Simulated scan of single mutants.
Amino acid sequence: MSTVSTVIVKAPAGIYQGLSHDGVNFFHSIDFLDLPTRFAPAQPAEFAPEQLFDATVERPHEIALSISTPDDARPGSDHPVVVYIHGGRFESGTHEDPRAEGTANARHGVVQVQLGYRVGFEGFVQFPGDEPHAYRGIDDCQVGLEWVQKNIEAFGGDPTNVTIIGQSAGATTALWLMRKDHYRGGFRRVIAISPCYPRHSFAQRKGTLRAFFGKPITRRSFEKASPKRLKRTFKLFRTRYILDMALGPAPFQPEELADVPVLLASTRDEFYHDIGGKWADNLKDSFFKRWIIKKTSILMGLRKESYDLWKFAADKIDPTRTMGRSIGDTQIRRWVAWAGDAAPGDTWM
Rank of each mutant, 00 (worst) to 15 (best):
T233A: 13
L230S: 04
A250Q: 11
P254I: 03
P261D: 02
K228G: 04
P261T: 03
F237P: 02
L243M: 07
M245W: 05
F234D: 01
L247C: 11
P249G: 07
G248E: 02
P249W: 02
M245T: 01
K235P: 00
R238F: 06
R238N: 13
R220I: 11
V260D: 01
R232P: 00
L236E: 09
L209R: 04
F212R: 07
A258C: 07
R232T: 09
T239A: 13
L243A: 00
R220K: 14
R220V: 13
V260Q: 00
A225L: 05
E255Q: 13
I217A: 08
E256G: 00
R210C: 06
F237D: 03
D244F: 03
R210Y: 04
K231V: 01
P254E: 02
R238C: 03
L230G: 07
E223R: 13
L230Y: 10
K231Q: 14
V260G: 02
A225R: 05
K231Y: 03
A258N: 05
I217T: 10
G214M: 01
R229G: 06
K215G: 05
L243H: 06
R232D: 15
L257R: 03
T239P: 00
S226T: 15
K228L: 12
L209M: 08
D244S: 09
K231P: 00
F234R: 13
F222C: 06
L257D: 06
K235G: 14
E223D: 15
P249F: 03
R210K: 15
R219L: 10
F234I: 00
E223C: 09
E223I: 11
P216S: 12
P251I: 10
T239F: 09
P249C: 05
E223V: 11
E255M: 07
G248L: 05
G248C: 07
L209I: 02
T239K: 13
I242W: 11
S226R: 11
A225D: 04
L243T: 04
M245G: 01
D259H: 08
L209E: 06
S226H: 10
A211P: 00
K235C: 04
F252V: 10
L257S: 03
T218N: 09
P254A: 03
P254Q: 02
L243P: 00
D259T: 06
A225E: 03
K215L: 14
R210P: 01
P249S: 08
A211F: 08
D244M: 05
F213H: 07
K215T: 08
F212M: 09
R219H: 10
F234W: 13
G248S: 06
S221H: 02
